[in-house]
Computed example of a mutant assay.
Amino acid sequence: MAIKKKIIALGLAVSLVGAGLLTGCGSKDTQTAKEEPTEKYPKKAMEFIAPGGAGGGWDLTIRTTAKILKDTNLVSVPMPITNKSGGGGGINLAYMQTKKGSDSLISVYSPPLLLINLNGSTELSYKDTTPLARLITDYGVFVVPKDSKYTSISEVMEALKTDPKSVKIGGNSSAGSMDHIQFLMVAKAAGVENIKDIDYISFQDGTATAQILGGHVDLLSTGLGDVEQLLASGELKALAQTADKHVGQGVLAEIPTVKEQGIDVTFENWRGLFAAPEMPDHAVKYWRETLAKMVETKEWDEACKKNGWDKAYLDQEEFENFLGTANDQYKGILEEIGMAKK
């Protein structure tokens, strides 16, 4: 009889435990499992894109970003870099439209993203991306071969005042885009008339430095970080840069400003990161938070000093407001020189 009662009690206990499992009552582990996310982000390799050729400003910026994110353990997944050059960034912008909603594509851009839309090169604009953050401000620089007859930007401007076609200007961006516009702004401020007649040759395949070294153009309009090694080696000499102060270290810090040579103008080449259009909210949140941490690292400080970049971080909302203001400014410049789309 006692044995029979024990069996009944054991069966009742098992039944109660079973009921608890079925209803979830008394199962703390099950509740915890439901509350924990099932997937982590990012869980696969990212697609980091430079819209220009290897060795250019976009390439340097996104490679530096990827390296620091990896070196500081802020991101653990691979971040291979792809170069998609052409159209002043337009080829890549069109490609980004095919990745709408992707959580794994990030590209770097700068003023040409706005300019190629304003000058009519593409109907797409920065509004066809997901802006994430502005990272840095770089500046333009005007360089010539080591044996050039020009020793200052003022001498170049005097030559252009006499004959606007006397100096061939080269750049990696398309006509009406950044390398072209930054030079025209300086020429206009210097008093050069008929700036539309200045010969500007675009090398969108990223070969502009090779072209000036080969003597195919007289002056190269580019970014400070793009030609640092060639300046250090003495193959090129810098006539002026477009900041309102001396920037960078070493050879970069020695370059005189345009203002120091009596030309009252500056030009900022900001650079920021943009994701595919309609990037999911969880991915946007992750990258905003991660990039905010990255720009506070000593590794980022060192990279900015080395490349002559000014730290100019803006989070997404501030960056979008900045882009709207910059878009209006560039539109005014293009209208003034007759290159704005009708």
Score class of each variant (00 low, 15 high):
residue 282 H to W: 08
residue 155 E to N: 10
residue 14 V to T: 09
residue 285 K to D: 15
residue 246 H to C: 12
residue 82 T to M: 08
residue 168 K to G: 11
residue 17 V to I: 03
residue 114 L to F: 14
residue 150 Y to T: 10
residue 267 F to H: 02
residue 237 K to L: 06
residue 246 H to S: 12
residue 272 G to Y: 04
residue 92 N to W: 11
residue 28 K to Q: 13
residue 45 A to R: 10
residue 100 K to I: 15
residue 23 T to R: 04
residue 139 Y to D: 00
residue 166 S to P: 04
residue 46 M to Y: 02
residue 256 P to H: 06
residue 342 K to P: 08
residue 172 N to L: 02
residue 237 K to S: 08
residue 261 Q to T: 01
residue 212 I to S: 00
residue 131 P to C: 12
residue 199 D to R: 08
residue 69 L to D: 02
residue 260 E to V: 07
residue 182 Q to M: 08
residue 46 M to G: 06
residue 137 T to V: 13
residue 149 K to T: 15
residue 62 I to T: 03
residue 33 A to F: 12
residue 101 G to K: 15
residue 316 Q to K: 04
residue 163 D to F: 05
residue 335 E to S: 13
residue 295 V to M: 04
residue 153 I to A: 03
residue 72 T to P: 01
residue 187 A to G: 13
residue 294 M to C: 01
residue 319 F to R: 04
residue 99 K to H: 13
residue 89 G to D: 00
residue 66 A to C: 14
residue 205 D to L: 13
residue 121 S to E: 08
residue 307 N to C: 05
residue 168 K to L: 14
residue 52 G to T: 10
residue 208 A to G: 06
residue 173 S to N: 14
residue 48 F to K: 04
residue 97 Q to P: 15
residue 136 I to M: 07
residue 42 P to S: 14
residue 162 T to W: 08
residue 337 I to D: 09
residue 162 T to Y: 05
residue 241 Q to K: 03
residue 28 K to F: 15
residue 32 T to N: 02
residue 156 V to S: 03
residue 99 K to W: 12
residue 117 N to A: 14
residue 113 L to K: 06
residue 131 P to Y: 12
residue 246 H to Q: 14
residue 116 I to M: 09
residue 292 A to H: 09
residue 126 Y to C: 07
residue 264 D to P: 11
residue 112 P to Y: 07
residue 131 P to I: 03
residue 139 Y to T: 00
residue 76 S to G: 10
residue 138 D to P: 02
residue 164 P to C: 05
residue 148 S to I: 01
residue 315 D to M: 11
residue 243 A to N: 05
residue 108 V to L: 06
residue 264 D to C: 13
residue 263 I to E: 00
residue 119 N to G: 07
residue 161 K to M: 08
residue 42 P to W: 15
residue 279 M to T: 06
residue 182 Q to R: 02
residue 148 S to T: 01
residue 127 K to S: 10
residue 186 V to C: 04
residue 288 R to P: 01
residue 100 K to V: 15
residue 278 E to A: 10
residue 164 P to A: 09
residue 340 A to G: 05
residue 131 P to F: 14
residue 83 N to P: 07
residue 183 F to K: 01
residue 49 I to K: 01
residue 219 L to Q: 07
residue 206 G to L: 06
residue 82 T to N: 04
residue 318 E to H: 10
residue 51 P to V: 05
residue 18 G to L: 08
residue 319 F to W: 14
residue 115 L to Q: 08
residue 181 I to V: 03
residue 157 M to C: 06
residue 6 K to E: 05
residue 228 E to V: 15
residue 83 N to E: 05
residue 235 E to C: 03
residue 31 Q to M: 03
residue 123 E to I: 04
residue 142 F to K: 00
residue 157 M to Q: 11
residue 87 G to C: 08
residue 16 L to A: 12
residue 203 F to M: 09
residue 152 S to L: 08
residue 77 V to D: 05
residue 120 G to S: 10
residue 254 E to P: 06
residue 324 G to A: 13
residue 125 S to G: 10
residue 120 G to A: 12
residue 165 K to M: 15
residue 220 L to W: 00
residue 3 I to M: 07
residue 20 G to M: 15
residue 131 P to T: 07
residue 126 Y to P: 00
residue 268 E to S: 10
residue 327 N to H: 12
residue 215 G to W: 13
residue 209 T to G: 05
residue 19 A to N: 03
residue 180 H to K: 06
residue 289 E to Q: 11
residue 167 V to L: 11
residue 180 H to Y: 14
residue 312 A to V: 07
residue 200 Y to R: 00
residue 291 L to S: 09
residue 197 D to M: 04
residue 156 V to R: 01
residue 325 T to S: 13
residue 132 L to C: 10
residue 112 P to T: 15
